[in-house]
Design a protein around this nucleic acid. Structure first.
Length: 787
DNA sequence: GCTGGACATTTTTTT
DNA sequence: AATGTCCAGC
């Protein structure tokens, strides 16, 4: 009797849970039910990845391990099981009672950590969890890597010698610090570009290398030796400004966990179930972080798609996802290959393109969706005609009943956007650009934020420097340097030196202005916490003289003021949405905010953005612009097979953004960066089977003359044929070595940084004096050794 | 310390 | 082509 009760109970239980998740396909269900142990979900584009994450969390919280266990609570009665049967038949709607009878060791929401990469993704996740779970969703920790780590650091960073009021530096701030470091260390900016140095430091941090670690790995490489010293200086500067950069946020959290096991334990027992989205884009530091949290309980579920890894240049390590099963032995691997987004045609095209990559886990998406219409490939005479085609297409679609917001225009680089823009303007098509000049990077916004930062953290010398003479107060560089020198000398915050400027003879000439400035800041600091944030902003605007400066600037000042108003509305929104709004909280939120977070799919605009920014988004109609050799794939990646594969993944991501219609354009001639170039259509275009495309070529009339001219594309074609022909021949006199000076027809002179044999040629990385570091094939590029 | 003109720079950038 | 950055000269 008891035995049959238990069988019935378990069968009904599974039936009810299956019904609850009836909208999931079998593979998705597997992912939803696998709540313990390591799980790798390989989720193709449009395979309902977020839905799976949401439902998996819902399963954990509502049913716990019920589906996977045969356990029946002792207190379950015949009557209970009868009820379950009724419920399963659809004769009762008392879901709550059903859940309370079925659930087995449900997971507490606060024990779940769900990590995404963008705020937008995190927000979406929270929203959908809220819709499904109500109140309980609030307790789930759904956030980005950075915001999760910042929250931990705010509590624990004092263990590492920072104060918890630390400022988060963005790239612009960091570049300033590097520049100052280079100057202080007497290093020529031309030989060591601040951006490149910062990039190197960032990569070291991605690898969890401290400046000392980094220094010990550089060996004989002079360039890296210098960078190691700059790194050391840079890091000390940040620390004394009580500031961290984006990469520090992850690295310091890992270090904290490694150095203080009791802190790690605390977070391990808090985050007993860890999920990571877009796992293919994690770097080593992020892997380590996840590993530290999950290695003990092993409840780690990562979701990703190796074919959509497009951030290698930022340190993302595709190996994390490729080797997950080695890192977490016994991992359950679930492939989600059914695509719900695209038409069959679009999917076939995307599959055909990505098949050309070799470094893959291998996976083929399929769909039950209709075949749909063919991909329209438009070959335009030039970028103007291309823009016309885009505008034409969109207005035609809108005439047919589509909305502007059903269209996205995607390009490889931001520079392409302005010709498209011009076309749209001409046709009166409303559009919105994502990226490019970012909102938070606009001068007036950065200035306002700098003022607020300094009020919050007076040690922040970088931002203090930014505003001390903005608007003009007659305090120039040399005065500021004097102040900072004194501050460093007597080991007091720069702000205190300012307040007591008259005590220091070196500052006597400017003492009045310095003290006035300090006094003004002091008065503003007094107001922090006493008045609302937007009022504070008004005071800053007014009392710093920034307002009157802008008012004196006419039209442009007006625009800037409007931007500041927009910042103010962001502030007001923040104050409304948070129970305990603080200046520090606001600064933190916006420092981890980006433009894509401002993308509003509700507004009826065509949206323009880079292919990178489009990841994770979908649109009815997508127009891919500029599919030309040299643009996409880009010039820099053309001769490097690894980079070509990354570009191809970007192509795959771009193609799969489209739900219904896909348009692809190439221009026979394009003006870019003030130069006209002629590019062959992209190889990715050729990789799409012809029968999926509908070709439209407005250049045929000119084709002959183009081929007869010595165009770059024609040159490329013939040279590459020569290259193939030469493949059989023995390697010729290759004599370059690292450190050699070489000359290149276009790029000028440079030093060889690295050499990688490749085919019958060598891939050479050269630091050119005029154009920076480039990778070229030695023979193909006709590098000549100098001397 | 400020300003104008020379000069370089322009891949992608979820944080 | 367009825009930001730097430095020399005032």
């Amino acid at each position: 009797m008891d035995f049959t009760l238990k069988n019935r109970y378990n069968a009904l239980k599974r039936q009810i849970i299956d019904d609850f998740f009836s909208r999931m396909n079998p593979m998705q269900k597997q992912a939803v039910y696998a709540i313990h142990g390591p799980v790798l979900i390989l989720a193709g584009a449009g395979s309902g990845k977020t839905t799976v994450i949401v439902n998996r969390i819902a399963n954990m919280i509502q049913f716990g391990e019920a589906y996977d266990s045969d356990y029946m609570p002792a207190q379950i009665t015949q009557e209970d099981v009868d009820f379950l049967e009724e419920y399963a038949r659809g004769e009762s709607w008392d879901l709550e009672r059903a859940i309370s009878l079925i659930k087995n060791r449900p997971v507490a929401p606060w024990n779940i950590l769900a990590i995404t990469f963008t705020n937008k993704a995190a927000g979406e996740l929270k929203e959908r969890l809220q819709a499904m779970l109500g109140e309980a969703a609030q307790e789930i920790n759904a956030s980005t890597f950075h915001s999760a780590c910042v929250r931990i650091l705010r509590r624990e960073i004092e263990n590492l010698g920072y104060r918890s009021s630390f400022t988060i530096y963005d790239t612009d701030d960091s570049v300033r610090v590097v520049k100052a470091a280079l100057k202080a260390m007497n290093i020529d900016e031309k030989r060591f570009s601040p951006k490149a140095v910062l990039g190197e430091i960032g990569r070291a941090k991605d690898q969890l290398l401290s400046s000392a670690d980094f220094a010990s790995t550089v060996g004989e490489d002079f360039r890296l030796q210098v960078i190691a010293k700059v790194y050391d200086y840079y890091q000390k500067q940040l620390m004394s400004a009580n500031a961290v950069d984006f990469d520090d946020i992850i690295m310091l959290t890992v270090r904290l966990f490694q150095k203080f096991p009791e802190i790690l334990d605390k977070y391990r027992s808090r985050f007993r179930y860890v999920m990571v989205d877009e796992y293919q884009d994690t770097n080593y530091a992020q892997f380590m972080l996840v590993n530290l949290l999950a290695s003990q309980h092993q409840n780690i579920c990562v979701v990703g798609d190796d074919d959509q890894s497009i951030y290698k240049f930022r340190g993302a390590d595709i190996g994390n996802i490729l080797n997950f099963e080695d890192q977490f032995p016994g991992a359950k691997v679930i492939r989600l290959e059914e695509n719900y987004r695209c038409t069959g045609t679009i999917l076939d095209a995307a599959n055909a393109v990505i098949e050309n990559n070799t470094e893959r886990k291998g996976k083929t998406l399929w769909t039950k969706n209709d075949t749909g219409v063919k991909i329209k490939v438009h070959r335009a005479a030039d970028e103007g005609e291309e823009a016309r085609f885009i505008a034409d297409t969109i207005s035609e679609n809108v005439k047919q009943g589509a909305k502007f917001s059903d269209h996205a225009v995607l390009y490889r680089m931001n520079a392409i956007s302005n010709t498209v823009e011009r076309g749209l303007v001409k046709y009166g098509i409303p559009y919105r650009i994502i990226g490019g000049l970012r909102f938070y990077e606009r001068k007036e916004i950065k200035d306002m934020i700098s003022y607020l930062s300094v009020l919050n953290n007076p040690s922040d010398t970088v931002r203090l420097r930014r505003i001390i003479n903005e608007p003009k107060r007659g305090i120039g560089d040399s005065s500021v340097n004097n102040v900072l020198e004194i501050a460093a000398g007597v080991e007091l915050p720069a702000f205190e030196i300012l307040e007591n400027a008259e005590q220091y003879p070196a500052l006597s000439r400017k003492a009045t202005s310095l003290m006035q400035f300090a006094e003004m800041l002091r008065a503003l600091m007094e107001k922090v916490g006493k008045i609302s944030l937007d009022q504070l902003l008004d005071h800053v605007l007014e009392e710093t003289g920034y307002l009157s400066m802008l008012q004196g600037e006419g039209f442009e000042g007006q625009t800037r003021l409007e931007n500041i108003e927009e910042l103010k509305s962001t502030m007001i929104r923040y104050e409304e949405e948070n129970d305990d709004p603080t200046l520090a909280g606001f600064l933190e939120e916006i420092s981890l905010y980006t433009d894509i977070d401002r993308y509003d799919p509700q507004a009826d605009n065509v949206v323009l953005m880079t292919m990178h920014s489009a990841k994770g988004l979908e649109f009815e109609n997508v127009i891919l612009v500029g599919l030309e050799e040299g643009i996409f794939p880009g010039m820099q990646s053309m001769y490097d097979p690894t980079q070509i594969e990354e570009e191809r993944r970007l192509a795959y991501v771009s193609l799969t953004r489209a739900k219904k219609r896909l348009y692809v354009t190439t221009a026979a001639q394009r003006m870019l960066f003030g130069q006209t170039m002629r590019n062959r259509p992209s190889r990715f275009l050729n990789e799409i089977p012809k029968e999926l495309c509908e070709m439209e070529d407005t250049t045929i009339a000119r084709r002959m003359s183009i081929n007869q001219r010595q165009t770059p594309s024609a040159a490329f074609k013939s040279t590459s044929k020569v290259g193939i022909g030469a493949a059989a021949q023995p390697e010729s006199n290759f004599t370059l070595k690292v450190g050699d000076m070489v000359s290149h027809k276009v790029f000028g002179q440079g030093m060889v940084l690295s050499i990688t044999p490749m085919g019958n040629d060598h891939l050479v990385e050269v630091a050119f004096e005029s154009v920076g570091t480039k990778k070229v094939m030695a023979k193909f590029a006709r590098l000549h050794k100098i001397q």
